[in-house]
Structure formats: C-alpha cells, structure tokens
Measured scan of single mutants.
Amino acid sequence: TEIRININGVTIHVRDASEELKKLIEHLLRLGADEKEIREVLHRWEK
C-alpha cells in the first residue's frame, strides 16, 4: 500500500506501507506528531 501524509504543507510519501504502519501513523497524527517525529518513526520502522 502506498500512502502520502501531508503535515503542514510537507508531504511524506511512503511506499509499501503495511496496514499496521498506516494505523500507527494515523494514531501518531491524532496525537499531534509533527513531520520530524513521523519521519523518525518511519526511519526506525524500515530497519
């Protein structure tokens, strides 16, 4: 699944996002995570 996240005008594009990762990101956004925090989570997730 491919997702695009727009945070304050900055688009983060994620290829091959699992449903689990998608739910995690949606949850973090609801909690008010910023772009830097989302990128950090994505970076750690890929490892």
Rank of each mutant, 00 (worst) to 15 (best):
K36V: 13
A33S: 05
K22L: 15
S18Y: 04
E20Q: 10
D34H: 07
S18N: 10
K23S: 12
E19S: 09
K47F: 03
L42W: 00
K36C: 01
E37S: 13
A17L: 09
L29G: 03
K22R: 13
K36A: 10
A17G: 08
E19F: 07
D34N: 12
V41P: 00
H27R: 07
K36P: 05
K22F: 15
E19V: 09
E19G: 07
I25T: 01
G32W: 01
I7N: 06
E37K: 13
W45Y: 12
T1F: 09
L31S: 13
H27Y: 07
H43L: 07
D16Y: 12
E40W: 01
L29M: 11
H27K: 10
G32V: 02
R15F: 12
H27P: 02
E20L: 06
K22W: 09
R4Q: 15
S18T: 11
E20G: 07
A33F: 08
E19T: 10
E35G: 06
R15G: 10
I25Y: 01
T1W: 03
G32I: 01
R15H: 15
N8W: 00
E35N: 04
E2N: 13
I7E: 04
E2R: 05
V41D: 01
L31E: 11
L21C: 02
L28N: 03
G9Q: 08
V14Y: 04
L21S: 01
N8H: 11
R44V: 10
I25A: 01
I38F: 06
I3P: 03
N6Y: 02
G32M: 02
S18D: 10
E20W: 05
R4F: 13
R4M: 11
G9M: 04
E46L: 13
E37A: 15
E46K: 05
R30G: 12
E37G: 08
H13V: 12
N6R: 09
V41F: 12
E46N: 07
R44M: 14
G9T: 05
K23G: 14
T11A: 14
K22I: 15
W45L: 09
V14K: 01
I7W: 00
V41E: 13
K23C: 08
I12C: 02
R15I: 13
G9N: 13
R44A: 15
D34E: 11
S18R: 05
E2C: 09
V41H: 08
D16Q: 12
K23W: 10
I38Y: 01
V14D: 02
I38K: 00
N6E: 11
I38G: 00
K23T: 13
H43W: 02
I25N: 00
L24M: 13
L42T: 02
H13K: 08
E26Q: 08
R39F: 09
K22P: 01
W45V: 07
E46C: 05
E2I: 07
H43V: 09
